[in-house]
Design a protein around this nucleic acid. Structure first.
Lengths: 234, 234
DNA sequence: CGGCATCCGGGAAGATACTG
DNA sequence: CAGTATCTTCCCGGATGCCG
């Protein structure tokens, strides 16, 4: 572990383990189950192969994930979080919940499917859901996900969409635009960005269950003078 | 903001704002109220002045802190979190709570006073406290802090120790050794590492209210072969 | 194709020295 | 005390190539 903070504070130690660039986002992509190297790379736009390799090695050495060989014929290797690795989800939730108040957040950026479903877990409002009960399916690319709502709780995970009352099909950003961006479902469907099959009323209700808090106010920043010569060297 | 993750995920955006090295620890040191540049530097062992300057500028630009001039005679400048900045405490708590299960955590490292009191807020166990009520004072160096326990909640903040039933005096690591390290209060007092004045029974009860979870199990790491020649280059 | 190594350029972090 | 300037070191990110 190069460059530790050398600080007994728990937060500092956590950052020793997962504070390097991309590390937390790698955890995010593994939070809904094992993935392959190229899956991770595809859903972490901008990461380079060598950095991903380094992070996977570091997280493995820290005991946060293991690598497993899938049984033949799919002789691929997959990376999977350890139980302790899965326990890092509250960190992702705290980061995500806090940043929704950021005035500089840009919701038009790319969004991975895993991010979307973790955001459902994070932003679900039990009070708004009341005694609403539903089983929703989502088809995003080749993958399917299921959300189960009931008793004021939500589960959101990878899984088959069989038995869902309603199935959304589209990209993660398109679904996010409806749930978080206030885009009307009709408009998205008419535009061909999204398709919804099954109980439309359930779909309409679902998209109201994830309210965002108001943006934080930005203080005036009194102008910073651009550094004006002086100072020494060695 | 150089080097953004370009990802609409809330966690990724949070890391754009506070993911740089030291940034979260700067927030930590400001979490209990305004501090001066040299205070921050003293409690962030290892940070260099220019990096601290950069972080303060970045966090100010992001709207997380403001700088204020204290009124004369103390014409010093202080850095203070904005309301939104204070709202980042759950991130610190999630990091800290999660890392207590790390097998590699070293509690003998240095610990700042602010870290200690934030850890009280984080690790307080309401169930263990039951209907225990107390007012505790802490003297650490030149600073004093107060913890108030009652109705299954705790407050821990900077403040005068007047009216405390018991006053601890010592370093943050010494107090942590008793609360988290299982060191008996008597032993620490006899060794001169700590002094306790006032109601000893209250002190003894207090140090039992912050239990640590069990360490995570480390998976076997199947040996990584140390790279065996080959590979390319340009 | 998946995974990993190596080389390179740029930039952030760390250490040190100096200024107002 | 509160920073700023400079130098060095190391990490990140992109490109390329080898290997199973």
């Amino acid at each position: 572990m190069p460059r530790s903070y050398e600080d007994a504070c728990g937060a500092a130690h956590a950052l020793d383990l997962i504070g390097e660039r991309w590390a937390i986002l790698v955890l995010r992509e593994l939070m809904l189950g094992p993935r392959r190297f190229s899956d991770l790379r595809a859903d972490l736009p901008g990461i380079s192969a060598n950095v991903l390799t380094q992070r996977l090695e570091g997280l493995e050495a820290a005991g946060l994930l293991t690598r497993r060989k899938l049984p033949p014929p799919a002789a691929a290797q997959v990376y999977e979080l350890t139980p302790w690795g899965y326990e890092s989800e509250p960190i992702l939730q705290a980061l995500g919940r806090w940043s929704t108040r950021s005035p500089s957040h840009d919701p038009t950026l790319p969004l991975s499917p895993v991010s979307l479903f973790l955001s459902f877990r994070t932003m679900f409002d039990a009070h708004r859901a009341g005694d609403f009960t539903a089983r929703l399916g989502f088809r995003i690319g080749e993958e399917t996900f299921v959300a189960l709502i009931g008793a004021g709780t939500i589960t959101a995970e990878r899984g088959p969409i069989d038995g869902a009352q309603v199935v959304f099909a589209g990209t993660a950003p398109a679904i996010a635009a409806v749930v978080y961006g206030g885009q009307p479902l009709d408009a998205m469907i008419d535009a061909g960005s999204l398709s919804v099959e099954g109980d439309r009323a359930v779909a309409e209700r679902f998209v109201t269950l994830f309210p965002l808090p108001p943006k934080a106010e930005m203080p005036d920043i009194p102008v910073r003078r651009p550094a004006k010569a002086g100072g020494g060297g060695r």
